[in-house]
Simulated assay, not measured.
Amino acid sequence: MPADKTLSHAANWLWMLKGETPSEDAAKLADVDFILHAEHGANASSFAARVTIGTDTNLHGGIVTALSTLAGPAHGGAAEDVMKMVQDIGTPENAAAYVKAKRKNREAVTGFGHRVYRAEDPRARHMRDGVKKLGEEMGAPEWYEILQGVVDAMKPYARHGLNVNVDFYSGVIYQLHGIPMDLYVPIFAIGRMPGWIIQCMDQQDSNILIRPLTLYNGPDVRPYTPVSER
């Protein structure tokens, strides 16, 4: 779809993707989603981009590296797994049993826990109400209800640092708009792109090859046995 210059960046993105002018609430939630997914420190994809730029390659190479790193389920690819989990649960009534079975088998519940945020991811709380409104607007409130069922079932594990993170709500936003799962990571990258570019430019300004040392923790020196004696 051709761009509509009368719309905001986020609203225009939805217009060009769907061919429908989004509601004010839907556009606002998309804007919040982009803002909350912005680059915020030395996360895996930003660091990977810096490593690439450190080899004196160009900006495009750094962004390709960042995108590849973002795609991993332990980083930006988690939204897809959350949506798959919601589909597996099916109805809000099944959420508690699903979580109980996962914890009994010592399996992770997708969308909970963060390497930095030990309490609730502060970004998640800014999406919760918007996701509820969007579900009601799109005539599919059950997706939000399933998410909240999982949140309620996970409350006993909050003391272990297993709190909801930003990826928990993102997938349902895209699902409600009918966006295919293979576009989730590229959408995440839209919000992350400005920060990646600044990270790369900063690395270029005072560049140095990033080559971390690794500590060997394997077996100690062992006696060599000649091949003829083995």
Score class of each variant (00 low, 15 high):
3 A>L: 05
9 H>G: 14
10 A>W: 04
13 W>P: 11
13 W>M: 08
15 W>N: 05
15 W>K: 08
17 L>M: 13
18 K>V: 07
20 E>D: 14
22 P>A: 02
24 E>S: 13
25 D>M: 12
25 D>Q: 15
26 A>Y: 00
27 A>S: 15
27 A>F: 04
27 A>T: 07
30 A>V: 09
31 D>W: 02
31 D>G: 09
33 D>Y: 07
34 F>Y: 03
37 H>C: 15
40 H>N: 05
43 N>T: 14
44 A>F: 10
44 A>N: 10
47 F>M: 13
48 A>N: 04
48 A>Q: 09
48 A>F: 07
49 A>R: 01
49 A>G: 10
51 V>F: 05
51 V>I: 14
53 I>N: 01
54 G>C: 11
55 T>Q: 03
56 D>H: 13
56 D>W: 05
56 D>P: 06
59 L>I: 11
59 L>E: 11
60 H>Q: 13
60 H>P: 02
62 G>V: 06
62 G>N: 02
68 S>F: 04
68 S>L: 14
70 L>G: 02
72 G>P: 03
73 P>F: 00
74 A>K: 15
74 A>L: 15
75 H>L: 10
83 M>K: 02
85 M>V: 07
88 D>K: 13
88 D>G: 01
88 D>C: 09
89 I>V: 14
89 I>Y: 08
92 P>K: 02
96 A>M: 10
97 A>N: 12
99 V>H: 01
105 N>K: 15
106 R>L: 10
106 R>G: 04
109 V>F: 00
114 H>K: 08
114 H>T: 02
115 R>N: 08
120 E>K: 01
120 E>Y: 04
121 D>I: 06
122 P>E: 09
124 A>M: 11
127 M>R: 03
129 D>W: 08
130 G>F: 03
130 G>Y: 00
132 K>M: 15
134 L>G: 08
134 L>A: 03
134 L>E: 03
138 M>S: 10
140 A>M: 04
142 E>F: 03
142 E>G: 06
142 E>C: 03
142 E>P: 05
142 E>N: 10
143 W>A: 03
145 E>Y: 05
145 E>N: 09
149 G>W: 02
149 G>V: 02
149 G>D: 04
152 D>H: 08
155 K>Y: 09
156 P>D: 10
159 R>M: 08
161 G>V: 13
161 G>R: 08
162 L>Q: 14
162 L>Y: 13
163 N>W: 06
163 N>A: 08
164 V>W: 02
165 N>Q: 09
166 V>R: 03
172 V>H: 00
177 H>F: 14
177 H>K: 08
178 G>D: 13
179 I>C: 05
179 I>T: 09
181 M>V: 10
182 D>M: 04
182 D>G: 04
184 Y>I: 01
186 P>V: 00
186 P>D: 03
187 I>R: 01
191 G>E: 00
191 G>F: 01
197 I>M: 10
200 C>W: 00
200 C>H: 00
202 D>E: 14
202 D>I: 08
204 Q>C: 12
205 D>H: 04
205 D>W: 01
205 D>Q: 10
205 D>A: 07
206 S>E: 12
208 I>A: 11
208 I>S: 12
208 I>E: 13
209 L>Q: 12
211 R>Y: 11
214 T>G: 14
217 N>G: 11
219 P>S: 11
222 R>C: 06
225 T>F: 04
225 T>R: 09
227 V>Q: 11
228 S>C: 01
228 S>L: 09
229 E>Q: 15
